[in-house]
């Protein structure tokens, strides 16, 4: 079943939405400023005759004219990383500071994780977790190629993530007892990746949406619990289903000590607010502070992103 029709009532322009979902995505790279400035990376691409366009909302995010950045010198040097344009949002929303302790609950293969490392100037402690051991090697490979040295890689179920390996409840001076910030870029039904993976929806079922929503709630709740009061948690998915987005936020603010906070999307990047009603369900009005991104708005994949503050 193709579920995209479900969301027609939510979008401003149904035809533009559906036709954008049918178009392939441009190839996009992010400049890794751990190793090079955006200016040098662009100059290196110019020198190799690789055509690109700088996105109008971020100087370090470049749309390439042709597929694949892999066979260029700036890529080999770790100056560039292939990353879907819209997936740069959650790290910007989390906005980590150098020296902080940051948790990425579902990190592999590491595009957003390495972007967090870059925003932290490769300092502090960035814990990249994934429950899939097989995907951790991709995370490590990407991080090392990009010169990331502040990353700790762990392999746990994020829903009951343990801080024991970090010395919780001991008097060791290096103990990590709580995170300053956490990113929950949750596993999801991936409806928004249809432009990248045309078969993304082949196995879509409502049952899967409901079961993955349970996992999402568990991970987001654990992220809030393990983040210090005053700390920030960002929740994101690459799907449109309100069951996996607003409903998950509604559950978290009901059950845990946290609240949604305002976050302005980058200038020139169009988003719409979260929705408060869906198929007979009503959500807390605060979920309007979340951002929905539809493919026809910025010619990207679909996305959802919300920022929360831990209150106690």
């Amino acid at each position: 079943m193709n579920p995209l029709g479900r969301y027609a009532p939510l979008v401003d322009d149904e035809e533009a939405f559906l036709s954008a979902c049918d178009r392939p995505l441009p190839s996009v790279v992010r400049v890794n400023t751990i190793k090079a400035t955006a200016e040098r990376a662009r100059s290196a691409l110019d020198a190799e005759g690789v055509g690109y366009e700088v996105t109008d909302w971020h100087p370090g995010i470049l749309k390439l004219d042709e597929r694949g950045p892999g066979t260029t010198w700036p890529y080999f040097h770790g100056w560039l990383h292939g990353q879907e344009e819209v997936s740069a949002l959650p790290a910007l929303a989390l906005d980590p500071e150098p020296g902080e302790v940051v948790w990425d609950a579902c990190a592999a293969p590491g595009s957003k994780t390495t972007q967090l490392a870059d925003l932290m100037d490769d300092t502090g402690i960035l814990i990249g977790n994934d429950n899939n051991l097989g995907r951790l090697s991709a995370l490590r490979h990407n991080a090392e190629r990009l010169g990331v040295s502040n990353l700790v890689v762990t392999n746990q179920d994020a829903r009951n993530y343990s801080l024991k390996p970090f010395g919780e409840d001991t008097d060791d001076p290096q103990t990590v007892g709580a995170f300053d910030r956490a990113l929950v870029d949750a596993p999801c039904s991936c409806e928004g990746t249809i432009r990248k993976n045309p078969d993304a929806l082949d196995r879509w079922t409502m049952d899967h949406v409901h079961s993955v929503a349970g996992i999402q709630k568990g991970i987001l709740r654990r992220a809030v619990q393990a983040t210090r009061p005053g700390g920030t948690v960002v929740y994101s998915t690459c799907t449109f289903a309100p069951e996996e987005n607003e409903a998950v936020l509604d559950h978290a603010i009901e059950e845990e000590d946290c609240e949604l906070v305002e976050w302005d999307a980058p200038e020139n990047f169009e988003t719409v607010p979260g929705i408060t009603e869906w198929e007979g369900e009503e959500y807390d009005p605060a979920v309007e502070l979340a951002h929905r991104v539809y493919p026809h708005h910025n010619d990207t994949g679909g996305f959802f992103c919300a920022k929360l503050e831990v209150t106690a």
């Binding site: 300092t123 402690i125 991080a143 700790v152 010395g167 290096q174 990590v176």
Partner: peptide, 29 residues
């Protein structure tokens, strides 16, 4: 950076510090 050994002679540089020993899967570069 702090320096760590995992495996025979494999040395890693980590931008922070953590409790030692540590059972994590990766630590820095």
């Amino acid at each position: 950076h702090t320096f760590w050994e995992k495996g025979k002679g494999k040395i890693w540089a980590f931008a922070g510090d953590l409790v030692s020993p540590n059972p994590v899967e990766g630590l820095g570069l």
